[in-house]
Amino acid sequence: MDKDFTPTIIGFLCNWCSYTGADLAGTARMHIPPSIRIIRVMCSGRIDPLFVLRTYLKGADGVMMMGCHPGDCHYQKGNYSTRRRYVMLDTILKTLGLDEKRIGLWWVSASEAPRYEKVTNEFTESIKKMGPNPVFKEIFI
């Protein structure tokens, strides 16, 4: 494992819960790994699976999808769709042996700053262990 490897992780965070949670973690000066770059979406239901695939194929080392806990979605049911989509992506990648562990889904509410800190650190660590995304260097993609 390359000790100096700082992964590039893209986070798609829903505006109402996870993004607010991340914001809270920031103001509380919690330790958030610098590897995360956040893209705010209004609802996790807005995370088109193609966003995730494209991010992965462009060479991001990890992709985090985050939204409100089931039942708490600001738009009632957006995150139930997200969950299916995630399961679908996960199954596709798993079936093809394509590092499905680089993509994950977490429910993080607006008040769960500590959870945000925990999952981002854990995920960064696990990505560090996996090393850089080989897609990044692949010419024939």
Partner: peptide, 25 residues
């Protein structure tokens, strides 16, 4: 810049994985 080279037209795997995500089920 980071690959040194790229298949043209690009997006082969994106197409197939993406199409899969749309309809394989």
């Amino acid at each position: 810049e980071h690959k040194g080279g790229l298949k043209i037209p690009p997006g082969t795997l994106f197409y197939h994985l993406g199409r899969m995500s749309h309809m394989a089920v």
